[in-house]
């Protein structure tokens, strides 16, 4: 199991699309170092031949009939949009 010191917070924050202040970076690095230190004890467990569990009960793909169902009207679906115009969500320019 990798050493906790390997948590490169700048890299991880970038992956998470999360802007952190220098104060948050320092604080989270220290706190998560403690948590990772606790988590390290998992390396003591012999997991050879053990299957991973993603869900407590086996679940299978669920199919629905391809039939249109009533859905939210556009104005209701857009009610929580931060900015909208002509039944569309307004976003900053994506292509220069």
């Amino acid at each position: 199991m990798p050493a906790p010191a390997e948590l490169n917070i700048d890299h991880v924050a970038k992956l998470a699309r999360l802007a952190l202040t220098p104060g948050e970076k320092a604080q989270f690095s220290q706190q998560l170092g403690d948590v990772l230190h606790h988590i390290e004890q998992l390396s003591k467990v012999d997991v050879s031949g053990v299957e991973p569990t993603a869900h407590a009960f086996p679940i299978y793909n669920v199919w629905a009939d391809d039939v249109a169902q009533p859905a939210l009207p556009v104005e209701v679906a857009l009610r929580n949009a931060p900015a909208q115009r002509d039944n569309m969500i307004v976003v900053p320019k994506v292509v220069e």
Partner: peptide
């Protein structure tokens, strides 16, 4: 890090269950 952390945790989850 996926294998070391997430996959291992899922296996220990199996043992806990």
């Amino acid at each position: 890090y996926y294998d070391a952390f997430y996959l291992r945790a899922q296996k220990v989850r199996t043992l806990i269950r």
